[in-house]
Nucleic acid binder design. Structure first.
Length: 140
DNA sequence: GCCAACGTTGGC
DNA sequence: GCCAACGTTGGC
């Protein structure tokens, strides 16, 4: 199983709304690196849910319930593009009893290479198993 | 193909 | 509100 982290501004789409709805179509990703990560996700993979800008903390764990398919919100350019934009579907797995803040992540030596810290603008990124376990431990 | 201008993201 | 990082666009 692989592990990932996705970002969302809670103003736009919060963990609470995600839980209320029970499922999310992760659409609107318009960055190639993030798109490649979406395409590598497999059903059952676990995904950390991070609140950017407001909160700046990992608030819960989701899992992939449907693998990548074309993004219905992408324009009608699908014919020419080599690979169109894609979405995955996620569902909530569990909230973190103690959300893990960005400051905590930065303070943890084991997380020094975390993609979130090294590429602050990437919105969908892989997380190593040991990093995933570390963040989970901080949050429980 | 280079690079300046510009827009967006996200931390502070 | 500001600014750094960085992706995209468009002129040349």
């Amino acid at each position: 199983m692989n592990h990932w982290l996705v970002k969302s501004e809670p103003d736009a789409y919060s963990w609470n709304k995600f839980v209320q709805e029970g499922k999310a179509v992760w659409d609107g990703v318009r960055n190639y690196q993030a798109r490649n990560n979406l395409m590598a996700m497999k059903t059952g993979d676990q995904v950390l849910f991070y609140h950017s800008v407001i909160g700046k903390e990992v608030v819960g764990v989701a899992k992939v319930c449907r693998e990548a398919y074309p993004d219905p919100t992408a324009g009608a350019n699908s014919g020419t593009a080599p690979t169109p934009w894609v979405v995955v579907e996620l569902e909530p797995l569990m909230p973190l009893p103690r959300p893990v803040t960005l400051a905590q992540l930065k303070a943890e030596p084991l997380l020094a290479n975390l993609a979130l810290l090294r590429q602050s603008r990437l919105s969908v990124m892989p997380i190593r198993p040991d990093e995933f376990e570390c963040i989970l431990a901080l949050g429980c």
